[in-house]
Amino acid sequence: MSAEPILEARGLSKTFRAGGAVFGKPFQAVKDVSLAVMPGETLAVVGESGCGKSTLARMLVGLETPDEGEILFRGAPIKRDRALRRQVQMVFQDPYLSLNPRRTVLDIVAEPLDVHGLAKGAPRTARVEELLTAVGLDPAASSRFPHEFSGGQRQRIGIARALAAEPSVLVCDEPVSALDVSVQAQVVNLLIDLQKRLGIAIIFIAHDLAVVRAISHRVMVMYLGRAVEEGGADRVLVTPNHPYTVALRGSALEPDPARARLARGKATRGEPPNPVNPPPGCRFNPRCPRVTDECRTNEPQMKRHTDAAGVSGVACYHPVHEAVELNA
């Protein structure tokens, strides 16, 4: 992998107002999050509902404007540059809601071609058929409508659409969480395959650690709008360092009775607090088994270091594995 990130986000923050744009209470959906993804690499962004991972995804593709921070494509700020925007495309979570039911598959998949004026007439049709083949669908499907397809096939249509403008980065927001297990594996394998063939970078937003393990090279864990841990997928998922990542890992159940039964009676207490009114200090402190006074008053910053597996980082005063030398 080359040394320069294909897509980079620096210090992204986004505040919404809950219950109305004017009188609602502000809450910070994403606070000071940075990430970088290399060409051909998959970075997974993991967290539970309300952690800000979808807002982060929407900022990366330009569906939301960050309040602070910037997004760089090959080192250049994206902002309103349409040519750069085209390079980052999105695959949505719900294959039933994200495809217009009144348009044919041809028109759905060709939309990026139309928007960016990339192809018309016969070349447009040919390109769509090529894309459908690439995602494992019959090119003859182009004259049909979304309701004629199963959930897995619809997600393939969504992926074909995202690929139409030949992006360098695909942002996939929970692309398989609405699918059955057997079909989920088909779509995960398709994404891995497309990445190998096209060299695209993938930002994979998910809550399921097992799926993340199957597809990602690197992982970033978010909690209540903050990045709490990042690093190589092996490192983060097998030897998690932040107590929240440990809790997530401990709650994830695998199809192995001996292992799954170990989780009995070990649930982490509490639920993610209201993002309108996050706790002071570390946002995980009310649920954390390693909490101290420091955690309740000062918010820990992400400290990164580089080891054999690349950059690793944790935002915690009392990480589980203390051994590593951390430098800011």
């Binding site: 297990v181 057997s182 079909v183 594996a185 891995i192 799926v211 393990r213 199957a214 997928a233």
Partner: peptide
Amino acid sequence: SAPRIETVEKLEPI
């Protein structure tokens, strides 16, 4: 077809 956290193997979809 079910992914696992401990091992990285290619998933075998149905």
